[in-house]
C-alpha cells in the first residue's frame, strides 16, 4: 500500500521534472545550457493556471503555457546565440525574470481555485500489479510526458534533424560544412526546451497541486538542469532521475503523514542529497560525455 502510493507519488511529482529534463537535454545537446528553466517552468505554471481559472479549459492551457515557455526560451536564445552573452549569467537572469514576472502577474490568482486536469484511469493497463496505478492512473499531462520522452529519443537518434542537432552541440563547424545552419538549430532547441519546461510547470499547477502560489516550482527547474547531466544527455534516461526526485518528494510527504518524528526540513533535503549522490556516481562512471560546445561555456565565464 505504501509502496504503491510512493510509486504513484513519484510519477505525479516527477512528471514536471521529467519534462524539464527532456527539454533541457534537447537544448544542451545543441550546446546551450539554460539555467533559467526554473523561470520557464514558473511562467508555464502561471499561464496554464490563469487559462484554467478564466476559461475552465485545461486543454487550452497546454498550448498557452507552451507558447509562454517558448517565448522565454526565445529570449534566452536571442541573448546567448545572437548577442553571445554568457549562458550562465543569462540563465540566472531569466530565472529572476520568470520568478519575478509570475509573482507579479499571478498575485490575483493565489486564492482563485480551479479544477484543471483530473486523473484519467486507463483501463487494463492500470490493473497491472504495483506499477499499474503509478503509471496509468494519472493526469493527461503525465501521459503526454511519456509520449514526449519517447518522441525526443526518436527525434534525437533516429532523424536527420536530430543528427544535425547533436552535431551542433559537438562541433558547429561540421554542421556548417554539412550545409546546415547551427544557429537555427540552437534557436529551435532552446525554444523547444523552454516549451517543455513550461509544460512541466503546467503539470505542476493544473494537474498535480491544483493551486498557484508564487515560487511554487521550488527549484525543480534547477534540479532538472542537474538531472540532465545524470541522464548523460540522453532523454531515454531522463525518467530515472526525475522519478527518483519525485519519489524523494513523495516519501517525504508519506513519512509526514505517518507522523514520523523527523523534521520536515531534513526530509526535504533528501531529494537534493540524492541528486548530489547521483551526480557523483555519474561522474565516477564517466558515463556519457558533455557535448563539446557546452564544455566551452564552463571554460569561459
Amino acid at each position: 500500500m505504501i509502496l504503491e502510493s510512493l510509486l504513484a507519488g513519484a510519477v505525479q511529482s516527477g512528471t514536471s521534472v521529467l519534462l524539464t529534463v527532456c527539454g533541457e537535454t534537447v537544448s544542451e545537446r545543441a550546446g546551450v545550457i539554460n539555467l533559467g528553466t526554473e523561470g520557464c517552468m514558473a511562467v508555464g505554471a502561471l499561464f496554464a493556471y490563469i487559462v484554467c481559472a478564466e476559461t475552465g479549459q485545461p486543454f487550452l492551457a497546454i498550448p498557452v503555457a507552451c507558447i509562454a515557455g517558448g517565448l522565454m526560451g526565445l529570449l534566452h536564445a536571442y541573448f546567448v546565440i545572437s548577442r553571445k552573452a554568457n549562458q550562465l549569467a543569462t540563465g540566472l537572469t531569466l530565472m529572476f525574470l520568470g520568478l519575478g514576472l509570475t509573482a507579479f502577474l499571478g498575485r490575483n490568482y493565489v486564492s482563485v481555485s480551479t479544477e484543471g486536469f483530473t486523473k484519467l484511469r486507463i483501463p487494463f493497463l492500470a490493473d497491472i500489479p504495483i506499477i499499474g496505478d503509478a503509471l496509468f492512473d494519472q493526469d493527461p499531462i503525465t501521459y503526454l510526458s511519456y509520449l514526449i520522452c519517447a518522441g525526443m529519443c526518436l527525434l534525437l537518434y533516429k532523424t536527420r534533424f536530430g543528427l544535425i542537432l547533436r552535431a551542433t552541440g559537438e562541433d558547429e563547424n561540421v554542421v556548417y560544412a554539412y550545409g546546415a545552419d547551427p544557429i537555427r538549430m540552437r534557436y529551435l532547441s532552446v525554444i523547444m526546451g523552454g516549451m517543455l519546461s513550461a509544460l512541466g510547470g503546467a503539470q505542476l499547477s493544473i494537474a498535480y497541486t491544483h493551486t498557484w502560489i508564487e515560487g511554487m516550482t521550488g527549484s525543480r527547474g534547477v534540479i532538472g538542469v542537474a538531472l540532465v547531466c545524470i541522464a548523460a544527455w540522453n532523454p531515454a534516461k531522463a525518467f530515472i532521475g526525475a522519478y527518483i526526485f519525485g519519489a524523494a518528494q513523495a516519501l517525504q510527504m508519506i513519512l509526514q503523514q505517518q507522523g514520523l518524528e523527523i523534521s520536515s526540513f531534513l526530509l526535504m533535503m533528501i531529494p537534493y542529497v540524492l541528486v548530489l549522490i547521483a551526480l557523483f556516481a555519474a561522474s565516477i562512471k564517466k558515463n556519457g560525455k558533455m557535448p563539446a560546445e557546452l564544455k566551452k561555456v564552463f571554460e569561459a565565464v
Binding site: V222, F265, Y272, L276, L279, K286, F298
Partner: peptide, 27 residues
C-alpha cells in the same frame, strides 16, 4: 577528486543549505 561540475554542485548545495538553516531556526 570526482570531477563533478562545480556549477551544478554549488547550485544544488544552495538548496541543501536553505533546508539546514530552516531546520535550525525551527528547532
Amino acid at each position: 577528486r570526482a570531477n563533478m561540475n562545480e556549477t551544478l554542485t554549488t547550485l544544488i548545495m544552495n538548496y541543501i543549505a536553505y533546508q539546514i538553516v530552516s531546520y535550525f531556526v525551527f528547532n
